[in-house]
Computed example of a mutant assay.
Amino acid sequence: MDHRITSFSRDGLTFDVADQGPLDGEIVVLLHGFPQTAASWSALAPLLHAEGYRTLAPNQRGYSPGARPRGRRAYRMSELVEDVLALYRVTGADRVHVIGHDWGAAVAWMLAARRPEVVATLTALSVPHPAAFLKSMVTSGQAVKSWYMVFFQLPWLPELLVRLAHRYGRDRAIKVNMASGQTAENAARDIDFLSGSGALTPAINWYRAMPLSSPGQTRQPVRTRTMLVWGDQDVALGRKGAELTRDYVAGPYTFHALPGVGHWIPEQVPDQLAEFLRPHLAAAT
Rank of each mutant, 00 (worst) to 15 (best):
Y168T: 10
Y168V: 07
Y168P: 02
Y168K: 14
G169K: 09
G169R: 12
G169Y: 01
R170I: 06
R170N: 03
R170C: 02
R170A: 04
D171N: 10
D171I: 02
R172M: 14
R172Y: 15
R172N: 13
A173D: 13
A173K: 10
A173H: 13
A173M: 15
A173Y: 10
A173I: 13
A173E: 14
A173Q: 15
I174W: 00
I174V: 08
I174L: 01
K175Y: 03
V176Y: 05
N177C: 14
N177E: 14
M178E: 11
M178T: 07
M178H: 06
M178Q: 10
M178F: 03
A179L: 05
A179G: 12
S180I: 11
S180G: 13
S180R: 15
G181V: 04
G181E: 02
Q182P: 04
Q182A: 15
Q182K: 13
Q182C: 14
T183K: 06
T183I: 08
T183P: 00
T183Y: 00
A184L: 07
E185K: 06
E185V: 08
E185Q: 08
E185S: 07
N186Q: 15
N186S: 14
A187M: 02
A187Y: 00
A187F: 00
A187V: 03
A187P: 00
A188N: 10
R189P: 02
D190P: 02
I191E: 00
D192M: 08
F193E: 05
F193M: 10
L194N: 05
S195C: 11
S195E: 06
S195F: 02
G196V: 11
S197P: 06
S197Q: 11
G198L: 00
A199I: 01
L200I: 07
L200P: 00
T201Y: 04
P202S: 05
P202R: 13
W206L: 11
W206F: 10
W206K: 12
W206V: 09
W206I: 07
W206N: 08
Y207G: 03
Y207D: 04
Y207L: 03
R208H: 00
R208E: 01
R208Q: 04
R208G: 01
A209R: 04
A209W: 00
M210P: 04
M210H: 12
M210Y: 07
P211K: 07
P211I: 04
L212S: 06
L212N: 04
S213F: 13
S213E: 15
S213R: 12
S214A: 15
S214I: 03
P215F: 06
P215E: 09
P215C: 10
P215V: 13
P215T: 10
G216R: 06
